[in-house]
Design a protein around this nucleic acid. Structure first.
Lengths: 245, 245
DNA sequence: CGTATTATTGACCACTCTCAAAAAACGTGG
DNA sequence: CCACGTTTTTTGAGAGTGGTCAATAATACG
């Protein structure tokens, strides 16, 4: 499960200890550097640090005081919240170019954990906030990102509150396919998360997720070449299922 | 159902057609004017318009091109999304001081509708964005508001995906009580929304909401003096239920 | 390979939904 | 102000989707 998100070579980052990078970052147009002038990107580069993490490692926990913001260079990450008895809700799966760690004064609202080996850009919150004055574009960019995340959260609320199991799984696959489109070469969609993660993302059990996946496969809508990969065979039908039509 | 949110007098706004107000707006510390200098508040006042609406009136619809942002002066509002077959998810109930209408380039992500008679401050998006340059505080404020809404959305995802019917209703009551605390005089919490609205907010049916309410009442945790009002009798037990403990 | 973990499949069950009816609240007009 | 019809809420009986518990199969890993 180490090479599920292939487009970025972890070695690339390991070789340049700090400060470098970002110049040849393929993600320029994805990450929140998007649309910044070269000199402003340099200002960002000046304050960020690079972090490498193995899979299944906590990046920060819900309630921790929020010292950093993160952008994913390679690998994937999950965000989740827990109830006291262990029930878990995964609030998002993140991929290269995605941003996370924005918080209220009461600390991070969720736990962040690597799914695969990840390479992260880490921005000290204080320093980033100080940069707002020099690069006001930055704040605009963060607002846009946050609004876009809020919109996604609303979609997920509709999914969790009102969709059937089959519609939930279909929505998950459609969303995953879309969000990882530019990161793939082949037709197979990587599933870096476990069935348990998918279940906790959709408000279902692993058994139900497994049963629905099997049905979709039997109906010829998807293929499951191996655990860890998925093939969208009938995108239209899947999209129609996802919208509950 | 016309006077359920009593602390603000609709007449007050009717008498001053445009432009005035805001100076004696009790909500200064709630709304996004919070912490602005007097002259900056004036700049805001200069671009905003006042809107009065009767209950059960659409303010804007999902997908509409987003021309305005809104702040509630008095009354309450619901936000919701629909599936093609009519299934509905209410994503939020809003009260005086709350802000809504932030959107991505693809338009509003949800429909907004008045629950009671409402008095709104309406900000033209273009003009507000132009003000960012003069009043950078504004953008910071909007970012804070959006992050805070995103945090709330994550809480709601946990509720929708992982809480039982009883825990959902308890969470709803606790949240409503907290969010309307400074707007009440008496001990009774106003319920400006219908059972159907509550059901669509919690991902339940009206029957289940009604049954759970009846149970909570029989257990002496809440009181239901009349439809439209609710009394929290055992706040600790309710809060414990809400957290699933 | 052998062991541990994860995913699938099966049988059964329960929480919540559906359908239906009664009760209460609301609005309207006489 | 009350009678009436309408809408909303409550209550009840029964059903179904998805959950629980358990066993098997597949996969990962040392």
């Amino acid at each position: 499960m180490g090479s599920l998100m292939p487009p970025f070579d972890p070695l690339q980052d390991k070789e340049k200890p700090e400060g470098l990078g970002c110049a040849h970052c393929d993600l320029a147009e994805l990450a929140f550097c998007a649309g910044l002038k070269h000199e402003d990107v340099s200002r960002l580069t000046a304050i960020l640090g690079h972090v490498q993490l193995p899979p299944h490692t906590s990046i920060f926990r819900e309630g921790d005081s929020a010292q950093h913001l993160y952008s994913i260079a390679s690998g994937s990450v999950k965000l989740y919240k827990l109830l006291s008895d262990g029930r878990r809700q995964i609030t998002g799966f993140l991929f290269p170019g995605n941003f996370f760690g924005l918080s209220t004064p009461s600390g991070y609202a969720y736990t962040a954990e690597s799914l695969t080996p990840v390479s992260l850009c880490r921005f000290p919150r204080r320093k980033l906030e100080a940069l707002y004055q020099t690069v006001p574009q930055l704040e605009k960019r963060l607002l846009d990102i946050t609004i876009s995340e809020l919109t996604g959260a609303h979609d997920q609320m509709l999914l969790l509150g009102r969709k059937t199991a089959k519609e939930k799984v279909a929505s998950f696959i459609v969303g995953l396919e879309r969000r990882t489109r530019r990161l793939r070469q082949g037709p197979a969609v990587a599933l870096p998360m476990s069935r348990s993660d998918i279940a906790d993302y959709l408000g279902l059990t692993i058994e139900t997720v497994s049963r629905v996946m099997t049905n979709l496969k039997k109906e010829g809508i998807i293929g499951l070449p191996d655990a860890g990969h998925l093939l969208v065979k009938d995108h239209d039908t899947l999209a129609r299922l996802a919208e509950g039509a």
